[in-house]
Simulated scan of single mutants.
Amino acid sequence: MTPNTSSEPTSEPSSYVFDIVEEEPSPEPEPRVVPSDPAIMSKMSCAPVDPALIERIKKDFGNPKRTVQVKVGEGLDPDEIWWVVVFDLPPFESFKGGFRAFLTTAPGLPADGKWISLRGKDTWRSVDWDDEKLVRGQSALSKGYECLEN
């Protein structure tokens, strides 16, 4: 077979065969299961949330029914102290209500604070801490929920 160099269409079938390979989507990584440590929780205490923070979240989530914060301790930077803040929120606009928890360096609202949402199946996916710090964080989160339940 000679290649067709004219501009006229040819009726000869193409000799090219394309194999289309569809890749399987990569599976979602398994969520990290971080346990609470009852011994750590027993040394933690719940504290009231700063009233200025409560006022600030009203515009996004409505007026919280109950709030609590629990000190986690230092993260990767020894100069940063982290807290878990838990809100029990009513239904508000597009938010269906319920508990919302955050890991923050700014429970009292400094402008340069960091806020990380703690929710979903893999609660700690956005936190790059070692296992010891993650257990401490999960213990603070569990303590916060425990305080709101009592």
Rank of each mutant, 00 (worst) to 15 (best):
R66N: 05
W129G: 11
R100E: 07
F95W: 09
G120F: 11
F61K: 03
V85A: 01
P78F: 04
F61C: 02
Q138P: 13
R125D: 08
L76R: 08
D79W: 06
I116H: 08
D131A: 15
F61D: 10
P90D: 01
K96W: 13
P64V: 08
D77M: 05
P91C: 14
P90N: 04
S94W: 05
V135Y: 05
W83S: 09
P78L: 14
D60L: 02
P107G: 02
S94A: 05
D112K: 15
V135S: 05
Q138C: 07
R119V: 13
K59P: 05
G108Q: 12
K96I: 15
D77V: 04
G97V: 01
K114V: 15
A140D: 12
K58E: 14
A111W: 10
F102I: 15
P78S: 01
L134I: 13
L134H: 05
R100S: 11
I81A: 06
E93N: 11
D79N: 12
S142M: 14
R119L: 13
Q138L: 14
G97N: 13
S142Y: 08
P107K: 03
F102W: 10
V84G: 01
A106T: 04
S142D: 15
I81R: 00
A106W: 07
V70Q: 00
V127D: 09
W129S: 14
V84N: 01
A106S: 11
G120Q: 12
A101N: 07
A106D: 10
S142W: 06
V135C: 00
E93G: 03
G75Q: 02
L141D: 02
L89Y: 03
P91S: 13
K65M: 06
F87R: 01
P64W: 06
K114Y: 14
K58R: 15
F102K: 08
W129C: 07
W129V: 10
F87Q: 03
E132Q: 09
F102T: 08
S126W: 10
L89A: 08
L76Y: 11
I81E: 09
V72T: 03
Q138H: 15
F95T: 08
K59E: 06
K59Y: 06
S139K: 04
S126P: 04
E74G: 08
I57N: 01
K121V: 05
K58I: 10
V84A: 07
G113R: 09
A111D: 14
V84R: 00
F87N: 03
K71Y: 01
S94P: 03
D112W: 07
